[in-house]
């Protein structure tokens, strides 16, 4: 159920950048937001996040974009790209 992305790819990249920044800030990661590979796994092996980190991301996303991530949205938690697509589709602000 990959949500269709809008065609203007520059805005997509922008949102990916915003999300990367939000992730790095809310988890106080010691990496540059720009260095996060959008297709790499956020959880475990990739960025090395655990499930409490994922919860913190979800809380931050809900505050910023009004999107409540639920456990059924597992696919959206896979990577920065998947997460961005989910937010782009469901954001209310």
């Amino acid at each position: 159920m990959a949500p269709p992305l809008e065609t203007g790819s520059s805005t997509q990249n922008e949102l990916e950048q915003d999300l990367a920044r939000l992730i790095v800030e809310s988890l106080r990661l010691e990496v540059l937001p720009a260095s996060i590979d959008p297709s790499a796994a956020l959880f475990g092996e990739g960025l090395g996040l655990d499930s409490i980190d994922m919860l913190e991301i979800a809380l931050a996303l809900s505050k910023r974009y009004g999107v409540e991530l639920r456990s059924e949205n597992r696919a959206a938690l896979a990577s920065l790209r998947a997460l961005t697509a989910h937010i782009a589709q469901h954001r209310t602000r």
Partner: peptide
Amino acid sequence: PPGTPDTMLAVKE
């Protein structure tokens, strides 16, 4: 189950 990306989201629910 612990140790999955959505573990804590399920807990929150």
